[in-house]
Design a protein around this nucleic acid. Sequence first.
DNA 1: TGATTGTTCAG
DNA 2: TGAACAATC
Length: 446
Amino acid sequence: MTERSIVVFTRDLRVIDNPALCLAAEQGEVFPLFVFDQKIVTASDLGNKRLTFLLESLEDLHSGLQKIGSSLFLRVGNWTEEIINFCKEKEAQTIHLAIDHSNHSQKRLEDLRKKAQQIGIQVKGHQGIAVVEPGMITPASGEEYKMFSPYYQKWKEATWRDLLPAPKNLSSSERDQRSSEIFHNFRPEENHIRMKGGERTGRANMKSWMGEDLKNYAFLRNDLASDRTSRLSPYLHFGCLSPLEVAVLSRDHTDDSFVRQVCWRDFYLQVLSSHPEASVADYRTRDFKWRSDVNQYEAWKEGKTGYPIVDAAMRQLLHEGFMHNRTRMVVASFLTKDLHMDWRLGAKHFMEHLLDGDVASNQLNWQWVAGTGTDYNPHRVFNPTRQSERFDKTGEYIKRWVPELRQCFGKEIHDLGPLLREELGYPQPIVDHGEAIKKYKQDYAS
DNA sequence: TGATTGTTCAG
DNA sequence: TGAACAATC
């Protein structure tokens, strides 16, 4: 008798190199399922852009599954209950899924294990979210690596699992009416942004970027205007691409700066896995009184701070659901060090708008900038004018997103006088960087 | 993947 | 004079 099992997709929305799907398929009949977790769907931090990317990814997963004789079932509601009900409906004995590491994922998995056990259904957790899963390499001293460099060394030397092909032929199971209705009700918004969700687009983007831009990554990754970073983060977040595959394809490159970035993702996952509360609380507690000022927060969110590099980046975020890594650090430093606002406010806005909004990378990178994270350096302050001069010399990036400044000549765009601002209709700076940092340091010292 | 300041030293 | 470096915030 062949076994019947459910494969629950979470953020491993792919058929290639998907351990949960592949191993379930080896054991018998498989019913692929995705549940819109009511708690996630209704949470304020899931913005329309990321939801659209998710829907596109699910649609593509469905067609990927159809090519191998299956289809994707959809349910919406309480995540655990829906999975259990689906198991009963399909008379399945086993649930396969990839293990994830956020607070919410850990809790709901525990809940699922308990409920499944009560009715004699087995839950099998699989790898697939990371290159090297959290817990596979640990420092001698404690639970997780707190420093990136030693982690990176171990990560490179670790034994990586083998890549898995897509299952050849899953037994046929037509998507039911209910699934179609659910998908219909969530109908994706018209998507004009550059990154369309799904495994197919993800793979195409990966291949073309690796073919053309990977070799120049070290030279161009900080060049804001040329915009040559991989932009694979949303595909990695939803698992349209296997992080292991991305790492394998880039690790033997003469220059390791890209695969290092892939490793940062695993690094923060292992931090979050050991400290799930770090998504909302300081990783290193620190007694600093954050200010709050609604008008300044709004100005920051809308890209009207009067600092061109900050405004360009914040407008890019609203428009594309994406921001260059370099400017993520610049705007985060501006919110925490210049406006003295809580990193959680910044992280929340990022989560609402980023296609790649990922609890581990987002919250812990914010903590890194705020100086509450693993790499503790309260004196790290980005000077928006310096960053702009160094990484957007010609002002091309700024002009792309801040049309008021398109008429600027030469270097003046980095450091505008009050009269020119007035003339161009561009805001005066909402704070003076020098004074704001002086105050930050005073507050920090006391 | 910080910025600034001060020092040294080649030219 | 300015690059390179370390100390300091």
